[in-house]
Design a protein around this nucleic acid. Structure first.
Lengths: 226, 226
DNA sequence: TCACAAAGTAACTGTTTAGTTACTGGCTTT
DNA sequence: AAAGCCAGTAACTAAACAGTTACTTTGTGA
């Protein structure tokens, strides 16, 4: 499960054929490995169902290390959540909404969000878990506050350009636009299991997924067009 | 462990009038009380975080009764889930979509769903929990299968009447219409905690809630109108 | 009125769990 | 070269947990 250490300070520790476990004296790697394992475990089982032992095992390391790097289970969960949010907001920046025509910008944002949700089911799960608990951990996090307002500002700018051109309704609200995009993507994907069971249609079929992507773009634009 | 149980000396068993606490030799009442308590506990904590002791205490009864009536924790969870689904589908029937004009029918369905979601946050939580676990329990349930197809049939009928009058697009799909309505309501309400924290707007403010209700109706109709 | 079945209780059990302790080994510094 | 510190391990502990047992209470009908 472990391949040779390729980091900058690669130590040649393996003299004499010592054990090949994950943690061969590489703190950065061990920390990252725990965080990745915790992301999977929390996403799959929620905070109440996640097991500290399972995380350590998945990470190929030891419980002691988990407490060493992250303090306790809750702080580890918070680190996972923060990293997940940083992930989506960072990716969003590469969109460069400022350079796009208004309608195209909204369409690109919708398609980006859909794609990101599809590729990061663990993000959706973590959001669900966090909301189940009333955003108790997110509210504690100081790191994340300003990350988001920047994004809404950019979207507001894009909408304003559309309004100036007479394309969009003057009362179109950036948060509502984003909520619409996120809602349609989030619900479809995160509730796919119950929906598929109940309504007897395979929502994860590629052509259904493609239809829904088009639907999101169409609906979002229709909701703000004049 | 189980100290402070108010049951201790409450064995007078209310001969003159019905006892207020559960568990005075009234099986129907005890069962219902456990089910209600379990609904709250599972909705608040998920299946992994829910505690059997907490459910018994909330129900004003004893763990033994819980196992007596429901078998074990998982079967109790399934009973809670089934009851929750029966709740919404039963309420939906009172809509009588068949009697309404097409556009009005869709608007009424959207407003009904929004209202039901607002009034039953525990239903949204249970859905979230069930989806986190891949609809594992729902799939086991035989009771629920036909409950839903009936509802979609009624909606299809309504859309067909709208199509015949030239009001709706001929490719308007009943499941997509319902998904749109449910998505916009579900996401807004179930993710309100993280959204409010991040975007600094109180989504539960009455005027914002009212705006979103109008938004759902508008968007849904716009997505199917010719 | 009394037997018995169903409803209910409290204390218990074996297991799982988050978190800790006591220890090993190796890299770096002086 | 030895001291000291940091990454890492395994075995341990106290508490929490789901589920059980042994027992008491109460309404009913023969």
């Amino acid at each position: 499960m472990d391949k040779g250490q390729a980091q900058g300070k690669a130590k040649k520790a393996g003299n004499g054929g010592r054990a090949e476990r994950a943690g061969s004296r590489d703190p950065e790697r061990t920390r990252a490995s725990i965080l990745a394992a915790a992301t999977v475990e929390f996403a799959e089982n929620g905070i109440g169902g996640a097991r500290v032992d399972a995380i350590a095992e998945r990470a190929g390391t030891n419980k002691r290390m988990l407490y060493h790097y992250f303090g306790d289970k809750e702080q580890l969960y918070l680190a996972v959540l923060e990293e997940a949010y940083i992930g989506i907001r960072t990716a969003e920046r590469s969109l460069n909404l400022s350079d796009l025509a208004p309608e195209q910008g909204v369409a690109e944002l919708a398609m980006f969000t859909w794609k990101y949700f599809r590729e990061h089911p663990e993000f959706l799960s973590l959001l669900g878990t966090e909301n189940l608990h009333g955003a108790r951990w997110l509210r504690q996090s100081t790191r994340l506050k300003e990350l988001h307002s920047h994004f809404i500002d950019k979207l507001a700018e894009l909408l304003d350009r559309g309004k100036a051109k007479g394309l969009f309704r003057v009362d179109a609200d950036p948060l509502n636009v984003y909520l619409t995009i996120a809602a349609l993507g989030y619900f479809y994907l995160s509730n796919r299991h119950t929906l598929t069971t109940i309504f007897d249609r395979d929502l994860m079929d590629e052509s259904n997924l493609e239809d829904w992507r088009r639907h999101i773009v169409q609906v979002t634009l229709a909701s703000i067009r004049r």
